[in-house]
Amino acid sequence: MSHHSSNEVHPIGYGIFIFVWLGLVVLTGLTVVISGIHIPKLAVLVALLVAATKSSLVVNYFMHIKYEARIFKIILFMGIVTVTVFIGLTFFDVLYR
């Protein structure tokens, strides 16, 4: 095999997971509070931004993508780009119809 399988186990530490969880809870509180404030137009953007931050925490730490080989990051990147392209190009139709 051209790649050596990395079958060793790497513990990361309980503490960091709890820390990340606290961050996620705080962000959830934040997004609920912000939604109460009336900011037209920006509301969706802010909500999505908070959601994106939360998911990047989950992906990086809980799903340990931060510690994975480069190919895992490429796969994730391809997924995100695809999502953006599919939704983005469709906007050109619906927005200008």
Binding site: M1, H3, S5, S6, N7, E68, A69, I71, F72, I75, L76, M78, G79, T82, V83, F86, I87
Partner: peptide, 23 residues
């Protein structure tokens, strides 16, 4: 033959398909 990184790789690819499904 055990390749744990390969298994995780396969899982991530599957997760991407789930992501596109919800997309």
């Amino acid at each position: 033959h055990r390749d744990f990184e390969g298994a995780r790789l396969g899982m991530w690819l599957f997760l991407i398909t789930e992501l596109i499904l919800f997309t």
